[in-house]
Design a binder for these strands. Structure first.
Lengths: 254, 254
DNA sequence: ACATTGGATACCGTATACAGTTGTGCCGAC
DNA sequence: GTCGGCACAACTGTATACGGTATCCAATGT
């Protein structure tokens, strides 16, 4: 049932940094996970990935274990997979994010420096353009870029990292949301509000904007994800022997 | 300068679970770190630990990497050490804890079940006894037990785990605090207040108690830690060649 | 006395090898 | 035709081995 990781053409080319092998493989895999290039129902097996990278199992194994430890992957007895989050998981993640992100945004607004502001401006411009053209992919990229920018301004690295990780974990459903419904407007408006607060260096406003933004996002995520699950259940129950080609629809949601 | 991990008598005896070797070593090392049995200025080298456990380097290496990844250890070019936290680090950790723990306490108060309540009662009894006898060690143990109990009642595992990790990271200075000044009273009172709120299943009260408790704890931690750093600086500057036996005093603080 | 350089060493990262375990597909029995 | 083994293949976890590199020490020169 579970597909295999289709052999990446020239991954090796992407390995560039002078860090250790494990590090580079970890970074590469994480990036692909962040961008949802891997998706559920894909079994990650160290031996395969190792041969794909042209290395031995060990660095890959370390990278996979680390990713699993950080919640990006779920380890099974037979390889790793990206975890299929239950509704309760998403609720849990959002609970933490709700607690952390408003304060983080406030801090960012307080400590914002020039280059970060420039980056935010660039990101918001992208978002506007994408919104105008109704280009979802670009909106997603802009959204990620915007977040990366203000998170980078958060001095408390532990706070920033914790947030980043939790955001990554809901990335899949996040993408689905943006693609799916008319929540794009919500996102676009939310970004504008945040951008405004950041520009004014107004921590209180930033926190408030973030809080409302997150509430809206959570709303949207839940409705979309719920619909997905319902669809899956509906597809599962009547004919469980339905061929793999027709499976969960998460297939093309990649 | 940096000491070595003194060969543990029969660590192997403590390895009991039927999990994988890496797992058990990880758990054992983490426990020792939580209890500050390892302390800074101790270099952890995989080969040594491996021979101590009677295994090869690999499981130890994995355990150490994992601990480092989770912030329990800092990797250097020459083995791992428990990180000496700067004041800014402590501030950062407390900022996150301030954001998370009140809500977590509220959740715990909401979802508290019978066995957990019993455990809380047992812990608070221990704390009272320790407080009466002025037995710092027991107070510390009771404190840890109390926290473990209510954290166990938090249904949101991600939230609970995140908190647990950050708490562990300040464990060292935490112990120093309790040992040092008259902050024991603060802790004892804080525990009582929390216990009361938990018993009444009052989320709001629990959150409030936790917030004030944390504020007090942070206060205390900072004064103590600051004093420590001052002392270190004072000891460092005049005679940097001071013998190892007289060093930072973190020595016997174990 | 102190700085510099060379070598020895300790340790890390990666590779290869081996053993144990678990899923899986095949075959035979009912 | 279905169910129960049975053997094989796949994958994980651990061990051993090897090469590279950073650190330490000592010897030499200034």
């Amino acid at each position: 049932m579970a597909r295999r990781l289709n052999a990446p053409s020239e991954i090796v080319a992407r390995l560039s940094k002078p860090d250790s092998l494990s590090e580079r493989i970890y970074a590469d895999l994480r990036q692909r996970l962040q961008r949802c290039e891997i998706g559920p129902d894909v079994r990650l097996v160290d031996t395969e990935i190792a041969s794909a990278y042209g290395t031995s199992r060990m660095p890959v194994r370390e990278a996979l274990l680390r990713l699993a430890n950080e919640g990006y992957l779920a380890g099974t007895t037979r390889g790793f997979m990206v975890p299929r989050l239950a509704l309760s998981d998403i609720r849990d993640i959002f609970e933490v994010r709700r607690l952390l992100e408003p304060q983080a945004a406030a801090n960012a607004a307080r400590d914002l420096d020039e280059p970060t502001e420039a980056e935010l401006t660039a990101a918001i411009r992208e978002a506007r353009e994408a919104s105008r053209l109704d280009d979802v992919e670009r909106l997603i990229v802009a959204n990620i870029r915007f977040r990366a920018a203000w998170l980078g301004a958060v001095r408390n690295e532990r706070l920033a990292n914790t947030i980043a990780r939790f955001v990554d974990h809901v990335q899949t459903v996040r993408l689905g949301t943006l693609r799916g419904s008319g929540t794009r407007k919500v996102v676009a408006d939310g970004l504008e509000g945040l951008y405004d607060a950041f520009l004014r260096r107004d921590p209180t406003a930033a926190a408030k904007r973030m809080a409302t933004f997150m509430a809206a996002a959570e709303e949207a995520f839940f409705s979309v994800r719920k619909a997905e699950l319902d669809r899956e259940d509906a597809a599962e129950t009547p004919d469980s022997k339905s061929p793999a080609s027709k499976s969960p629809a998460a297939e093309d949601a990649r």
